[in-house]
Design a protein around this nucleic acid. Structure first.
Lengths: 189, 189
DNA sequence: TTAATTCTTGAGTGTTCGCTCAAAAACAAC
DNA sequence: GTTGTTTTTGAGCGAACACTCAAGAATTAA
C-alpha cells in the first residue's frame, strides 16, 4: 500500500558510476549525477543518503564489474597481470584526457572524503593487492626468484605502478612512457 | 613616487607553499592562504593574478628547495635515489595524514587545473624523470644490466613508484608497505 | 471510494568559493 | 605641503555547491 519507486537501484547506480568515473568524486555535482540518473536531488538523497553513499555504491558496482570481466578472460596468473596493465593503459589513454580506473582515481581524492568512504576505498585497494599477490606467488612457484623482492613487495609495487600510470597519464604522459612503467614493474614478477 | 609593497614576494610565497603543501590546491582556500601570508584577497590578486598564478610560484619555490637540498647531500647516484625514496616516505608518513611531496600531490589534482599550471607541473615532472634517468644511467655504467629494463624505463618506473607511494600513504598504507614498494622499485636500478 | 503510505518534485536553504572594486592609506618627488 | 602613483583594505559580488522539505502525485489495502 505505497507508491513504488520509478527506477531500479542497479540502473541508476550504473549511470552514477559513469559520471563519477569521468569527472571524479569532487568533479561530479549532484546536478550532473541527477541528470544522468534521471532523478531529482530529493530522490537521490532519499535513496542514498548522501553523495558519499551514492559514491560507495557506484564504487562497489565498478569493482564488481572489473572482477567479473577479469574472471571471464580465463587467463593464467602472468598473462592476467600483463593484460591488467594493458587494459589500464588503454583506458587511461582513451577519450579526451582519459578516465583511467575509478578505484585508483578515487585514492587520489581520499584526503577530502569521509571516513566511511576512505575505509571502502582502502578495502578495495587491499583486495587488489591480494589479487596481485596471489598472481605473483603463483608465478614464483613455477619460476622462483630467491634473490628478488618478495611476492608481497612485488604485489605492492604493482599497485603503486598502476596508480602511477593513472596519474602520469593525466599529466599527459605518452603511451610509451606508461608502457615503460608497466614493463619495468612486470619485469619483477 | 609610489607606495612600496609591505611584503617581500619570496616570504609570502613560502607561506603559501606551506598551505598548498598541507591542504592541496583545491583544499587551500584564498582565505586560508591570505591568513597564512598576512595579506587580504585584493593584495594577493594584485600580486599574483589568480590562485593558479600563486600556486605556480609556490610550486617553483618548492622544487627549487628540494633540488638545493638534494645537491647539498653530496651523494652518489645510487645513494641519492635511495635517500630520495626514504625522505619521500618519511614525509608521507609525518604529521597527521602526511603531506607527501607537493609536486606529486599536485599531479593527482591536474584534471581540474588550468592549462598553464598543467604545463608547469608536467615540466617539473619531466625534470624529475631526467634527474632519475641521469642517476640510473650512471649506476648502470658501473654495473651493467643488459637483460633488465632500459634506464629510461627504470627512471619512469621510479617516478611512478614515487607517485604510488604518496597516494598509497594517503590511503593509510603502513610504512612497511611503502618501503616494500621502494625496495622493489630500487631493485631495478 | 477512501485512507494509508511512499515516492517525486523543484524551489529554496545556508555555505563556501574565487574574485572584484571603490575608497582610503602610504609613500616618493617636487 | 602638494601632487602623483601604487598598495591596501574589506565589504561584497555572482556562481556553485551539497542538501532539505513541504506539497503534490502515485500506488495499494480495505
Amino acid at each position: 500500500m505505497a507508491r513504488p519507486p520509478s527506477f531500479t537501484r542497479e540502473a541508476v547506480v550504473e549511470r552514477a558510476m559513469e559520471v563519477f568515473w569521468r569527472e571524479g568524486f569532487h568533479g561530479a555535482s549532484i546536478a550532473q549525477l541527477g541528470a544522468a540518473m534521471g532523478l531529482r536531488p530529493g530522490s537521490i538523497y532519499a535513496a542514498f543518503g548522501s553523495k558519499e553513499g551514492l559514491f560507495r555504491e557506484a564504487l562497489a558496482a565498478y569493482t564488481r564489474q572489473v572482477r567479473a570481466r577479469a574472471r571471464a578472460l580465463q587467463l593464467g596468473p602472468r598473462a592476467l597481470l600483463e593484460r591488467w596493465f594493458t587494459l589500464h593503459i588503454d583506458r587511461a589513454l582513451a577519450e579526451a584526457g582519459g578516465r583511467g580506473c575509478l578505484l585508483l582515481n578515487s585514492v587520489a581524492e581520499l584526503p577530502r572524503l569521509d571516513d566511511e568512504t576512505v575505509a571502502a576505498v582502502r578495502a578495495e585497494l587491499d583486495a587488489l593487492e591480494r589479487l596481485f599477490h596471489h598472481c605473483v606467488a603463483s608465478v614464483r612457484r613455477q619460476t622462483p626468484r630467491p634473490d628478488g623482492p618478495s611476492p608481497t613487495a612485488t604485489a605492492r609495487l604493482l599497485v603503486a605502478a598502476l596508480i602511477g600510470i593513472g596519474v602520469m597519464s593525466r599529466a599527459g604522459a605518452p603511451r610509451r612512457t606508461l608502457r615503460a612503467v608497466a614493463h619495468a614493474a612486470l619485469a619483477q614478477v
